[in-house]
Design a protein around this nucleic acid. Structure first.
Lengths: 335, 335
DNA sequence: CCAATTTTTGTTAGCGTTAACAGAGACGCT
DNA sequence: AGCGTCTCTGTTAACGCTAACAAAAATTGG
């Protein structure tokens, strides 16, 4: 421990130049003679010099770090998003610092943001899927680049989001196209924007077909709650088609239906949302909607970087369209 | 943008003290008069002052950030670990910076570690489940606190790991106890230590029972590869019990068995590993082995912190025992 | 070949914090 | 009163880097 590595001056001394020249080489400044550049690079390599990010952050006022605030990164959606964000950020030369929060209330979110700010992150991405999270963002310093993902569509903050409505509409329409008279819905928690959007899309599709939407059954994303809803659905003979707000809910529903001897897709068709890698191996393989998390991550980062570079804090909005993935859990209803 | 927040001197001026006194208040230094402390706190609150972590990191030589190097954080295990690590670190006042790597070869790992080092992280956690990752750790600066998770058991580096061998032994024994004559194994990729450990434990249990282990079938953690193995297993009439290296493999196996009309657990019993939240809703509910990721995270962080504080780089080792979770995918063989 | 320009390099002054030391009161003891 | 000993506070100097300016070297044009 304790032994600190060489600093810029050490490199400079070895290369026979001033530390400023080393700095210039490091930052790709144009006006450096080729020969000098080479000598400096050699010295850097010889000493195993590593620039001190803290010092740079101190003097420039920003570090090459992007702060991410997220909850529950074990769920498939958030985890994928986070992974994609890291990948993209790394390609742009940024590190990602994760501020995990247990709850998405303002206090937790604010605290996480504070932590990031005190490290002088270059920008912040908030994965803010619920109402209470949005509020915390209102009274944030205006001068720090910020992007929200899956946040409140009605808030004046830069936002990137999967088009939940379109995805849900596609899923519902797919079931209607197969000939079903109506489609039931197992939703996510109703304080999530994702859930609201998916309920909306489902409802839109039904209304557009002149149908009266049945009451949605609220779940909490978990297979357990899907199972509970499934037990009810299984007992309702009129149900022939179910759209669940995510694949894990679908798994629970499938299991309940199976237990009650209701065959999928012969008697009941099911469509999920997320396309988790396992969805193709459910019994039966699950038709679902696949959001493009990579695209979301790319869009968010791009938005953030443009804010960082330009200094403008425009309130943009970007939506990524999901795609329906048809598998074997959907069939026409038996007449 | 551009508008930087107030600095320590601003707080000091407002409180009518020197900046050093502010520093003392911030760091909980004992020798500050209560009255002064209060005045400083008031000034801090009034200005909305936030200490500059970069400056602190520069002068102390370490930031309050822990670097994590991990791959593929979408898999359930790594994602859970990462989440638990963040939680624990946050409780200790540390932020977590994630260096995601696409591949676990030395170059990628070294690059990720370099990035962390240049930010002067307080310590590094490497989630290094494969051989090639271990090599990269050999020639790392010795003076930076480092802990590996799920790494090579035979390398002189501080390591925290789930007891794969014990878990696999328990799973296998559970099947033998149910009366099965032997147990087949669908393994993970053989360059993962986790896989090796699980194969080992499975083999040990069989050998201890005087049985000759059948050849393990190699998968890659995915449901898809589980499905492929399952197709083979389904055609082998002598197979009555299968232990898969994780739950997703088990899902694929279950699906294949189902397609071939082989009933679980009546004809074939299956045990998984990981206890993903959905495992209880597989068809049938999956008996599996649950590693305690929270415990792993806590142990790693504790190990790292003790290194950070003491400065010693002892090569410790800590193992977390997993627990068998019995569900309905196991039954005695039909005779 | 010299002045005007351009390119390359060096010098100096911070960025905001902590560490080390120094100074100023307050207190108790002889 | 005088003097050491606390407790509290202030002063100064880094930490390693970039930005701004200054100087030197190389290049150009007449």
């Amino acid at each position: 421990m304790a032994v600190h590595g060489p600093a810029m001056t050490d490199v400079a001394r070895l290369a026979g130049v001033s530390h400023q020249t080393v700095s210039r080489v490091l930052n790709g400044h144009p006006n450096v003679r080729e020969q000098t550049r080479l000598r400096v690079r050699a010295a850097i390599a010889e000493l195993g010099y590593r620039p001190n990010g803290a010092a740079r952050a101190l003097v420039t006022g920003r570090s090459q770090v992007i702060g991410v605030v997220a909850q529950n990164t074990t769920l498939y959606g958030p985890a994928s998003l986070l992974a994609a964000l890291e990948q993209t950020a790394a390609e742009e030369g940024f590190a990602v610092s994760v501020g995990s929060v247990r709850n998405l209330d303002h206090r937790s979110i604010s605290a996480a943001v504070e932590r990031h700010l005190s490290h002088r992150v270059a920008g912040i991405v908030v994965i803010a899927p619920v109402e209470s999270a949005g509020e915390a963002l209102e009274r944030l310093p205006k001068d720090v680049p910020l992007v929200t993902v899956d946040g409140d569509p009605n808030r004046p903050v830069p936002l990137v989001t999967v088009d939940q409505v379109a995805g849900a509409r596609a899923a519902t329409q797919h079931l209607l196209d197969a000939g079903h008279r109506t489609v039931w819905h197992v939703s996510g928690p109703t304080d999530w924007f994702d859930s609201v959007g998916r309920i909306d899309g489902w409802r839109q599709a039904l209304l557009a077909a002149g149908l009266d939407p049945p009451p949605p059954m609220p779940g909490d994303w978990s297979a357990a709650s899907g199972y509970r809803c499934g037990q009810m659905l299984a007992r309702m003979p009129e149900v022939t088609a179910v759209f669940t707000a995510n694949d894990h809910l679908a798994l629970g529903v499938l299991r309940a239906l199976h237990e009650f001897g209701r065959r999928v897709p012969d008697e009941i068709s099911v469509v999920g949302f997320d396309d988790v890698p396992e969805a193709a191996y459910f019994i039966p393989p699950l038709t679902t909607v696949r959001p493009d998390f990579d695209a979301v991550a790319r869009a968010s980062l791009q938005m953030l970087l443009s804010q960082i570079e330009s200094g403008t804090g425009g309130a943009l909005r970007q939506t990524v369209a999901p795609a329906l993935v048809a598998r074997q859990s959907v069939a026409p209803p038996r007449r």
